[in-house]
């Protein structure tokens, strides 16, 4: 690893894009591997700094992993992500990490799990969904509620409509803001959809990730359904550069999202400035 060779945690190790999956018109999942196999083994919810050496470096959540690769789902929004979307299989990238705390998979043991995601927000949540599926006996009922703007914008369709519904004791509900002519499923925003489905707060942990406005409204809905702040977990994002709690920019009060987060309970977030 770069750490051993140089002692400098800001220097990435070289890796390659070994597979690219087009999720939606603006989102692709990149499979990353090194000559020695998987770069490292992140915990669900942890992040990595991924770079195209001559373009830039950015922090992304790891959406899933296999024995020899990491999967990183990236939406095209800026300079680096546009360049990544133009890259092809075989492209050399730089990668460093893993960073952050990850989801509290130990504390979640024995609980029923509710996953609520919107748009690309499913990317970090997918890592913990897959973890719960791999360790199926440790967790109770799994309930995935997901929404995107249109059917075309739904990420990870293979998981949503094929893999996850087949998992024992697992329920998947998908909604879209606007249907197209082929869509026969529910239509509407995620927060009212959750309110309709009424997932009981009994022995359940809710993991919520999506656009800030969706998170805000889902939190209100969950409170209405009787969830307390300790039962709700979310994962935050902020501009990051170092990833190791030194460069300063991702602070929320005295916490650094890259190091102390990105995963926080709603109870923890209430103690921090609402500057995210």
């Amino acid at each position: 690893m770069a750490d051993v060779a140089t002692g400098n945690p800001l220097v990435p190790m070289p890796a390659r894009i070994v597979k690219i999956v087009e999720e939606t018109p603006d989102t692709k999942t990149f499979y990353i591997s090194t000559d020695q196999g998987k770069p490292f083994t992140p915990k669900p919810g942890q992040c990595v700094m991924l770079s195209l050496l001559d373009v830039g470096e950015g922090m992304f959540s790891v959406t899933s992993q296999g024995p020899d690769h990491l999967e990183i789902a990236i939406r095209k929004v800026g300079v680096l992500t546009t360049a990544l979307h133009e890259a092809e299989v075989g492209q050399v990238v730089g990668i460093r990490g893993p960073y952050g705390n990850g989801f509290p998979v130990e504390e979640m043991k024995g609980k029923d799990m509710l996953f609520i995601a919107g748009g690309i927000g499913l990317a970090p949540v997918r890592s913990v969904i897959n973890y719960c599926i791999e360790h199926r006996e440790d967790y109770g009922h799994l309930w995935i509620i997901y929404g995107a703007r249109t059917p075309t914008d739904l990420c990870f369709k293979e998981d949503l409509f094929n893999n996850w519904p087949k998992v024992e004791n697992c329920r998947v509900d998908v909604t879209v803001d606007r249907a197209d002519e082929k869509w026969t499923g529910p239509v509407g925003f995620v927060p009212p959809f959750v309110e309709q489905l009424k997932p009981s707060p009994e022995n359940r942990i809710a993991i919520v990730c999506g656009p800030p406005i969706m998170i805000k409204l889902v939190l209100e809905t969950l409170a209405k359904l009787g969830y307390n702040d300790e039962q709700i977990i979310t994962t935050l994002e902020m501009r990051m550069k170092c990833g190791i709690g030194k460069c300063g920019r991702c602070n929320l009060g005295s916490k650094y999202i890259c190091l102390d987060g990105p995963v926080f309970t709603f109870a923890q977030l209430k103690l921090l400035p609402s500057e995210y």
Binding site: A2, T6, V11
Partner: peptide, 16 residues
């Protein structure tokens, strides 16, 4: 922090 060379799909880096 480091030097790099990048051309097409290939790239490498040399830490300082």
């Amino acid at each position: 922090l480091y030097d790099y060379w990048a051309s097409g799909k290939e790239a490498r880096l040399e830490p300082v």
